[in-house]
């Protein structure tokens, strides 16, 4: 079932399995981080702008906040960025049953690293039947690796600034995410959820930041529900 090669379920290697599983994602997200870095370079306080790489830890929301700051619309920047990050509520709710046995310190720390690739990798890894301790080590390895890399690449992008060339690597991130969704869509209701959400996302691509994504998620859930009723 798994789409990512994990290490055997011994405890200690789980950290390295997390690091190794995250490696392709680091490559995939590098162009995006550099683009965000170049946006950071354009605002008045680049250090404050860069701090979002850890504080917000989400590319689209960070970019939305930077755009609002650039426009001088600070309240709007906060509202739009939070709307973009609203999907994190779903990720957290979805991982909550898997983390029920985890200690409080881990849930408090791990929450800070929950984002699309870490959530998807953690969900896949948990589905292999890994113990709570192995899951914890795996997630910390993957999350901290991505966090450090992400923040470093945004800093690099801020230093490169507007000299950043158009490298045409925007395609890598969606393809990496595809590998995380691949086996899920074998299930009929998940397949309908994915198709409806993707179609809605394309149709609402010009909607204000975040609203298209929320509409797509809603369409996906409705489509999955309808397909479930049909199959009964």
């Amino acid at each position: 079932m798994s789409t990512v090669a994990f290490a055997p379920s011994t405890e200690r290697p789980s950290i390295f399995a997390g690091v190794r599983s995250m490696a392709p994602m680091m490559v995939a997200y590098t162009p995006y981080a550099l683009v965000i870095g170049s946006a950071v370079a354009r605002i008045d306080d680049p250090v404050a702008g860069w701090s979002g790489s850890w504080l917000i830890y989400g590319g689209s929301a960070h970019l939305a906040a930077l755009k609002g700051i650039g426009d001088g619309a600070f309240a709007m920047a906060i509202a739009v960025a939070l709307l973009v990050n609203a999907r994190l509520l779903l990720y957290s709710a979805s991982i909550a049953p898997r983390w029920r046995e985890q200690p409080v310190w881990f849930r408090l720390l791990g929450a800070a690293f929950l984002i699309d690739p870490t959530w998807a990798l953690a969900d896949q890894h948990a589905a292999t039947g890994a113990s709570p301790e192995a899951q914890r080590r795996f997630f910390l390895g993957a999350g901290i690796t991505l966090g450090v890399w992400w923040s470093a690449m945004i800093a690099a992008g801020a230093m490169i600034g507007d000299r950043l060339p158009h490298v045409g690597l925007e395609l890598v991130a969606p393809i990496c995410l595809m590998s995380l969704i691949g086996t899920r869509v074998r299930d009929r209701s998940n397949r309908w959820a994915a198709v409806a959400a993707a179609a809605t996302a394309l149709l609402t691509s010009h909607a204000p930041a975040g609203t298209g994504l929320m509409a797509a998620i809603a369409a996906g859930v409705v489509a999955a529900h309808v397909s479930g009723r049909w199959s009964r």
Partner: peptide, 9 residues
């Protein structure tokens, strides 16, 4: 399903 939809979007 919502998670799958979010990733697909």
């Amino acid at each position: 399903q919502a998670g799958t939809a979010a990733l697909a979007a």
